[in-house]
Nucleic acid binder design. Sequence first.
DNA 1: CGATTTTTTGAATCATATCAACGTACGTGG
DNA 2: CCACGTACGTTGATATGATTCAAAAAATCG
Lengths: 191, 191
Amino acid sequence: MFKAIHKYYRELVPAFSDQELAELDRCLTIRHIPKGQYVVREGQVCRFVSFVNKGLVREFYSADQKDVSVGFFVAGDYIAEYESFLTQTPAAASIDVLEDAEIVDLGFADMQRLYAYPNYQEFGRKIAELLFIYLNRRNTALLSFTPEERYRKMIVDQHELLQRVPQYMLASFIGVTPEHLSRIRKKMSRN
Amino acid sequence: MFKAIHKYYRELVPAFSDQELAELDRCLTIRHIPKGQYVVREGQVCRFVSFVNKGLVREFYSADQKDVSVGFFVAGDYIAEYESFLTQTPAAASIDVLEDAEIVDLGFADMQRLYAYPNYQEFGRKIAELLFIYLNRRNTALLSFTPEERYRKMIVDQHELLQRVPQYMLASFIGVTPEHLSRIRKKMSRN
DNA sequence: CGATTTTTTGAATCATATCAACGTACGTGG
DNA sequence: CCACGTACGTTGATATGATTCAAAAAATCG
């Protein structure tokens, strides 16, 4: 059981023993969350890091009455309000469900226990490094590309999401208003 | 020797033994870099993660002929083009010296050797986590605050830097042109 | 189908960029 | 120690890109 998760762990740290992964299994719990519900709510402490088995979830925060989406996650991705999870302090962002989701939770206390194994330390390190790299690229993109360039980029490497995420959420992810994204698309289609 | 560095390591991982830190010392080398020179150049692989003993350095990248500063680092900070260091691939950003610097290098291969110790795995994990948190906050700030708010924030929690970093570099860090930052300052001074 | 949500369009406005000019400070060589 | 050159900061005028608000059109859902 939890095959996809074992694969994920072994890809980052091949040295994981069957016994170590069995230890992990004992910590995991499955949760089904319907569309529209929250996985984590701003202001609450994020208690789990969760693997997405099915569905589509989104991380976002609120800035003067408006949602700003910061990420979309599908089957095979891990999700958490990571800063909140790491520090066990209230989350600045929320995570909600766009398509009925099945997620597999790993709690904070269990994670700490697993860190007794060096392989889990290494896993935790590599996860944090990957998240850093992801965020670093997003940061660079926001600073050095125009909205249109960011949208084009999204078409190329996240085209599966474009069909599933409403355009007004993509707009905030790209950093523009829905109206402006609509105009960008119109302009692009004229070529 | 390398007292400040030992302190840095033990603050993140109190369990470090004297022997483990002595092992670290054998990997460290000091480098003096004068103002105007590069620590890492875009396109080259970042071979070291470096502790700043003295001086002031800056990370930046180039976007259509212009520099965009992404961070300023002083004594007590660690620097690297971290994605390049982690993946040993060419750096997207450069690091240069704004005030004559003394830095202490730790090479990639040595870092890998140290990861044999679980305590160094834990250290590496915590560093990556801190960097993630730092970047996450910067990201949020860029998306949800106005340039003026970002400048005010900078005054509050990096006021020491304002004296040492030329204003046009701060401008790109904040995400505006030098002219516009000048106007923001003028407007702020009218209150 | 009707009701609601999402996307598009238009017009006015605002924030920031650009370009060009000028002022000021600073460090260096004479 | 002065004068000059270079780098930095400021100011003004204009241009551009993105937002806002309002409304219509299109898509989605029960």
